[in-house]
Every structure is written in structure tokens, then in C-alpha cells.
């Protein structure tokens, strides 16, 4: 393909991907409780409504708490796992890596059902703690992948240099490896946070009737009455995702994080 054709093709696909979001953003600006596009009686009242109406405020708060805590859990579990796999690199360590990557690779319904029967069995079905831990396990893959990538980029001679300069094992970890991994831990956290906010099926199966999150609230509204607030939430979620990934792209190397090795610096 020629250069122009390539750019044209990429642009068309991106526009198609943007179309539903544009429509939803338009819908969120309707003055009335109707989903019209182009919107009528332009107004931002539904944005205010999200933060005022307790029907939506509670799920918003739930979603934020779950995302913040579960992503922290995911990073806390992923870091020692990735470090161990990196430093040992034997069969057992590789099996551990597969275990860390598996939760996110499988169809989420399977994990969701697994979590459901698990929490029912131990009597924690319907509690927010159950949702948080489930998300923490489900999303552990993302920091495992980003931190492992970070470790793969750590030059072994940095570790050796630190050792020859008098640093013990633990000091090498603290003064060399962890500082180098910080950006990868932050990206892993951001990925996990955004995905936890958007996750529906696990939150639904584990505590859908007691701990409503925003996706669950939207799905319920799809059945029992559309409102422009759904558009508002969608716009905010897209914005948050774009902000998080944009920051990673701005301060990190997103192409490398996603597996590209051959990227020019121009």
C-alpha cells in the first residue's frame, strides 16, 4: 500500500471506532430525558446529575473504591511474582508466570462463575471485599506483564555493578531494580484501574445485586429505562482511559510496553 492509502485506511478505521463514542457524547448533552442525536436543548445537567443523584452516586463510589483497591492488590501480588520469575527463570518460575497471565487470557465468564461459586462456598457472596479480591486476581495479569517487560529491559550488568560496589541482594533490589521498575508498576496500576472500572461480568456475578458498580448500573438501565446519564458515564470512562493511557504514552514508551522492539526514536 502506498503511504497515503495507509494513512487513509488507518483514519477510516479510527473514525469508525470513534463513531459510537461521538454519538454517545452527543446524547449525553440532551436537555430532556431522551436519547436524541443530534442532541436537543443542549445542557450539561446530566453531568451534574451523576454527582447529585444517589442512584448513580453510590455505584460511582463503589466503582472507584473497587478499582483503586483491587489494582493496588494486583500490583502488590504481581511485583514479587514477576521478580521471582525474572531472577530464577526455571521451569517452576515459568509455570508461575503462566498462572499470573492466565486469569486475564481466559474468557471472563469462566472466572466470574468460578468466583461466584467460591464466594458462595465461603459465605462472602455479595460483599464488596469479594468484588475487590476477585478483580485483584482477575487483573493481576496486567501488572505482571508490564513489570516483566520492565525487568526484561534491566541490563544484568547494572545488578552486577551494584554488587561490585558493595550492595547486598536486598540493597540492589531497593536501590536499583525497584526505581527502574516504578514506571512499569504505575502503568500496570493504570491498566488495572481502567479495566476494573469497566469490568462488568465478575462484579455482577460476585455481588451484582448488593454492590452496584457503574457498568452494572448502566446495564440495569438498559433494561429499565434509558437516561442520558448513561452517556455521561460512557464519556467519563472514555476520557479516563484516554487520560491514563495518554499519560503512559507521554511519559513511557507505549509501543515497547505493547511488545514492539523495532521503534525509531524520530
Amino acid at each position: 500500500m502506498t503511504r497515503h492509502l495507509q494513512i487513509f485506511y488507518v483514519t477510516v478505521i479510527l473514525l469508525l471506532l470513534a463513531a459510537p463514542i461521538v454519538v454517545v457524547a452527543g446524547v449525553s448533552l440532551n436537555g430532556q430525558q431522551s436519547l436524541r442525536f443530534p442532541p436537543q436543548d443542549l445542557s450539561l445537567k446530566w453531568y451534574a446529575e451523576l454527582f447529585r443523584n444517589s442512584d448513580w452516586l453510590v455505584p460511582l463510589r463503589n466503582s472507584l473504591i473497587i478499582a483503586a483497591v483491587s489494582s493496588l492488590l494486583a500490583v502488590a501480588i504481581a511485583l514479587p511474582l514477576a521478580l521471582h520469575v525474572w531472577s530464577r527463570n526455571n521451569r517452576l518460575a515459568r509455570a508461575l508466570y503462566v498462572l499470573g497471565v492466565a486469569p486475564f487470557m481466559l474468557p471472563p465468564v469462566i472466572s466470574a462463575l468460578g468466583f461466584l461459586v467460591f464466594w458462595v462456598s465461603i459465605g462472602m457472596y455479595g460483599q464488596m471485599t469479594a468484588t475487590i479480591i476477585s478483580h485483584g486476581v482477575f487483573l493481576v495479569t496486567l501488572p505482571v506483564v508490564t513489570i516483566s517487560l520492565g525487568l526484561a529491559g534491566v541490563d544484568t550488568s547494572l545488578v552486577e555493578a551494584a554488587r561490585t560496589m558493595g550492595a547486598r541482594r536486598g540493597q540492589v533490589l531497593r536501590t536499583v531494580i525497584l526505581p527502574l521498575l516504578t514506571p512499569y508498576m504505575i502503568s500496570g496500576y493504570a491498566f488495572a484501574f481502567v479495566l476494573s472500572l469497566n469490568e462488568y461480568i465478575i462484579a455482577y456475578m460476585v455481588a451484582g445485586f448488593t454492590v452496584e458498580t457503574l457498568p452494572i448500573k448502566i446495564f440495569n438501565s438498559l433494561r429499565y429505562g434509558y437516561t442520558p446519564i448513561m452517556g455521561v458515564v460512557s464519556v467519563i470512562f472514555v476520557g479516563l482511559a484516554a487520560l491514563a493511557f495518554g499519560l503512559i504514552g507521554r511519559y513511557g514508551n507505549l509501543p515497547r510496553l505493547l511488545g514492539a522492539e523495532r521503534v525509531g526514536n524520530d
Binding site: E160, T164, M165, G166
Partner: peptide
């Protein structure tokens, strides 16, 4: 290595 009190410059 950390107890040898040597200095080292690596190839990289």
C-alpha cells in the same frame, strides 16, 4: 562481590 572492596567498569 560486594565484600571484595574492588572497583569495576563494565563493558556496557
Amino acid at each position: 562481590p560486594e565484600k571484595r572492596e574492588f572497583g569495576m567498569v563494565f563493558q556496557s
